[in-house]
Simulated assay, not measured.
Amino acid sequence: MSIKSPVKTSGETIYSSEPDENLIVERIYKAVMEQQLAPNTKLSEARLCETFGVGRMRVRRALLLLSSQGIIDLHSNRGAYVACPDKSEAKDVFDARLLIEPPLVRQLAQAPSEASLALLADHIELEDAARRENERTEVIRLSGEFHTKLAQAIGNKSISRMMRELVTRTSLIVGLFGSSENASCPDDEHTKILNAIQSRDPERAEELLISHLNHIQSGLDMDAKQQPQDDLVSILGST
C-alpha cells in the first residue's frame, strides 16, 4: 500500500488524498472479521498513521468509531487494542444470538421476498467461490457476514446494526478460542438454512439456525489463546 506524501499545516501533519476515517474503520473491521487481527492486538496510532498515510486526528476519529462498535477497546494511558472477549462474554454473545437469530430467520422464512432470496443466494455463491479458490480469510469473513445478511434481508436496520456487532464479537471469540478447523462456518449449513427459507419452512429454518449456532459454539476451546500481532502495515495494507 503506498503512503501519501505529508503536507505540513499549522496543526498536525496531513496527507494529500488521504482516506477518511470510515475507510480506516472498514479496513480494520475487515481484518478483524477475517481473523487477521487477533484479539488484544495493539493498534498504535503511529503505526496506523504510517499504514494509511493519514494524520493522528483522523486515526483517533476512526478509533473512536471502532470503539463505539465494540471492535476495539480504548484504555487510558495505554492506547487502543483489538477487543478481547473473555469466557463470560463469549457465552453472553452466543446467548444473545440464540435470542435474536432464530426468530429472525423464522420471520424471514414465512414470506421471503425475491430480493431477500437473491441477496442470500448471491452471498452463498461468494462463499462457495472463496472455498473453491481456498481463500481462507475471505471464507472466514463471508461466513460471518451471512448472518448480517439475514438481518438485512428482513429490512430492519436496528437488528442489522446489532447483528453486525454480535457477528464481529463472534469473530473475535472464534479467533481467540477457536481452531483453524472451525474458523469459518461449516461448508453446507448456510445452504441448508437458505433452502429452508426458500421452501418457506419457518420451523426447519429456525431449527437449522439453532443447530448451526450450537455447532459453532461447541467447536470453541475456552482455554485456547491466540497471540496478538504487531505487523499492522502488512496486515492492514493488504486487506
Rank of each mutant, 00 (worst) to 15 (best):
1 M>D: 12
4 K>E: 15
6 P>Y: 11
7 V>H: 13
10 S>T: 15
12 E>G: 13
14 I>M: 15
20 D>P: 10
25 V>D: 04
25 V>M: 07
25 V>L: 07
26 E>L: 06
29 Y>F: 14
33 M>W: 06
33 M>V: 10
37 L>P: 07
37 L>H: 05
38 A>T: 03
41 T>P: 09
43 L>Y: 12
47 R>M: 14
48 L>D: 13
49 C>E: 15
49 C>Y: 12
50 E>H: 15
50 E>T: 15
51 T>A: 14
53 G>K: 08
54 V>M: 11
55 G>P: 12
55 G>Y: 14
56 R>S: 12
57 M>S: 14
58 R>N: 15
59 V>L: 14
61 R>G: 09
65 L>N: 14
67 S>N: 13
71 I>R: 10
71 I>A: 11
73 D>E: 15
74 L>Y: 05
81 Y>W: 08
81 Y>D: 05
83 A>S: 14
84 C>V: 02
86 D>Y: 07
86 D>Q: 09
87 K>W: 04
90 A>Q: 04
92 D>W: 00
93 V>E: 02
93 V>D: 05
96 A>W: 00
110 Q>D: 01
113 S>F: 01
113 S>R: 09
114 E>T: 04
115 A>N: 01
117 L>H: 01
121 A>T: 13
122 D>H: 07
123 H>G: 07
125 E>R: 08
128 D>M: 07
128 D>E: 12
129 A>S: 12
130 A>N: 05
131 R>P: 04
132 R>F: 01
133 E>N: 08
133 E>D: 05
133 E>M: 05
136 R>F: 00
139 V>T: 11
140 I>Y: 01
149 K>T: 04
151 A>I: 06
151 A>R: 04
154 I>N: 06
155 G>E: 10
158 S>V: 11
158 S>H: 06
159 I>V: 14
162 M>D: 09
163 M>G: 04
168 T>R: 08
172 L>Y: 02
173 I>T: 05
181 E>A: 00
182 N>Y: 00
186 P>A: 05
188 D>E: 15
196 A>F: 06
197 I>C: 08
197 I>W: 02
198 Q>I: 08
199 S>D: 13
201 D>T: 08
203 E>H: 10
205 A>W: 02
207 E>C: 04
207 E>W: 06
210 I>Y: 00
214 N>R: 14
218 S>C: 08
219 G>L: 05
221 D>M: 01
223 D>F: 02
227 Q>M: 09
229 Q>E: 10
231 D>E: 13
233 V>R: 13
234 S>V: 06
235 I>A: 03
237 G>R: 07
238 S>Y: 02
238 S>P: 01
